[in-house]
Design a protein around this nucleic acid. Sequence first.
DNA 1: GCAGCGCCTACGTGCGTAGT
DNA 2: ACTACGCACGTAGGCGCTGC
Length: 361
Amino acid sequence: MQISNSSRPSVPDGVHVDDLTLDPWGLLITAHTTTVDATCPSCGRSSTRMHSAYWRTLKDLPWQDRAVTWRLKVRRFRCSHCPGRIFSERVPGLAARKARRSERLAEAQTDIGMVLGGEPGARLSRRLAMPVSGDTVLRLIRHRGINSSPPPRVVGIDDWAWRRGRTYGTIVCDLERRRVIDLLPGRSSAPVRDWLAAHPSVTVISRDRSGPYAEAARTGAPTATQVADRWHLLVNASEALRGIVERHQSEIRVVAHRLVHASSDGHDGTESAPTSELHNPRRDRCETALRFHGEGMPTKEIARRIRASRNAVRHWVRTGRFMPYRRAPGPSRLDRHLSFVETRWQEGERSATVLHRELRA
DNA sequence: GCAGCGCCTACGTGCGTAGT
DNA sequence: ACTACGCACGTAGGCGCTGC
């Protein structure tokens, strides 16, 4: 198959393509190196004394949705300066020493792996005509390593679960660069204290209100400023708001009802009828259902027409009249939950007061 | 001195399995 | 479903021997 020069895969300098073979499995590029000499990796001097040659096989980035394989003839050289030293020529721009894939392919698969992980990354890579195993994706990620960053100044510390309810650890984030920088064993104060002592660059510590982290920050970084993190502040604020709304629910309902009627009737809303006497869509649908039933319409058809469930229609037909919704006596599940939250909030308020006192001390 | 050949070691890779 | 681990296999690269 003929392939135009403009659409051919890019060829590194010092490599000459001898043949391109396109088959259902991909594109095979047969090539050889063209430089007359090679640089000895030991002494750094070039040598022209060829020893032998062999074929290298390399995977590369896909071309037109086809996997690309290089079959490259490379040579071995004897070094003119290192006694007995024999080395293989390198192919800069294509592959590293001993590599089975090109640098650009390795980079692409590493990037995919960094986003998706091992197995999912391998699946996407295979879908993109860059076949690889999940293990190799993970190896590529480990090989890249973690880029070094300047010493952290503002860190966030919180607990997290290796296994929820069983094993916990502590996560340390660089809040300026939004990156996880360390994982510590357990959620006690000692590892955090040691970590902070080993990182004197930290000037601000954002943490939750737990005692161990407060203790760790106080002893490990006594000069650092401690702040409550934004997430916990928002959680506390939203819990407090819910508590207030719930405590004044009945007043809010009355006011809302008046406002609705004032806007729809042109009335000022100061006088209002009881809720049970208001327009009730549920009662309307029930009465319609009973009328249809009286006309001999099947339950299924009634349910379809009034857009109610067949069970609801069956219930209305069985009772023969509208049954207004009666709330069960005692607090609802939501009320019980909100009551629990309110209690926790009051406990939190007390803890916050203690924390505030500690921070000021 | 150089080129060709073969052997050996270490590395890269994929697969099966166990653990979470 | 995913990762870690061990293992087997293929091969890149290094080295020595031999013939010209």
